[in-house]
Design a protein around this nucleic acid. Structure first.
Length: 212
DNA sequence: CTCCCGATAT
DNA sequence: ATATCAGGAG
């Protein structure tokens, strides 16, 4: 739908604004990133980082999480919301990692999707950050911004993912996803997008529409 | 489609 | 008071 020139302008401007856009979650192992990303559902990365700081001191290995007392784990992650589902999923994930995946966080989309609480968004975060496998991460920011900018007209995250894959060069998929998140947090906010301050406005459908 | 769910900005 | 936050499952 958008012209190739428009897409290039958006990519160029995001690169200028956020040259170092990366994962905002704090982690030091693949398992920690998997758990942090699961906790990040409908929760800010900032809060996840506060919770995981203590969580990762208490639970070091996949075995620690798999054998954790469910009620205790629920309380440990409570501030991230959806804590009952998340605690159950994390325990089962770690059990499967131990029993089915030889103690390693899976390295393919197909295997990652077998884990409870892991959808394409979480899987793409793992693939991109741990295994350097490019992927478009469609979270709430990517969905909102790509729709506003006119990069897609789809509402379904999977359809958006494939739409963006068609118009963004493969080697930029991971970085581009992070840049959408950064821009979504700083400027193109859900409630009150700051179009006045947005340098992408000239190339943005929503920005042009709200002009005058 | 609904449900899960706490914390913060508006 | 209400919308929203790096979603996923039934």
């Amino acid at each position: 739908m958008p012209s190739k020139e428009t897409v290039n302008k958006i990519i160029e401007e995001l690169e200028r604004l956020y040259p170092d856009a990366g994962c905002s979650l704090t982690y030091s192992t693949p398992l920690q990133l998997l758990i942090a990303t699961q906790l990040a559902a409908q929760c800010t990365d900032e809060r996840v980082n506060i919770v995981t700081k203590e969580l990762f001191k208490k639970y070091k290995t996949a075995e620690d999480f798999a054998n954790a007392d469910l009620k205790a784990l629920e309380q440990d992650i409570r501030p991230t919301g959806f804590y009952r589902n998340k605690a159950r999923n994390i325990k089962e994930c770690c059990r499967m990692i131990i029993e089915k995946f030889n103690g390693e966080v899976p390295d393919s989309m197909e295997k990652l999707l077998m884990l409870p609480g892991v959808g394409r968004k979480t899987a793409n975060v793992i693939l991109g950050n741990i295994y350097n496998i490019p992927g478009i991460v469609v979270d709430t920011h990517a969905k909102r911004l790509s729709n506003r900018m006119g990069l897609t007209k789809e509402e379904d995250p999977v359809k958006i993912e494939f739409d963006l894959m068609k118009i963004i060069p493969r080697e930029k998929w991971s970085k581009f996803s992070n840049q959408l998140v950064f821009h979504g947090r700083a400027v193109c906010k859900a409630r009150k997008p700051d179009c006045e301050a947005c340098s992408i406005r000239p190339y943005c459908v929503y920005g042009q529409k709200t002009l005058k």
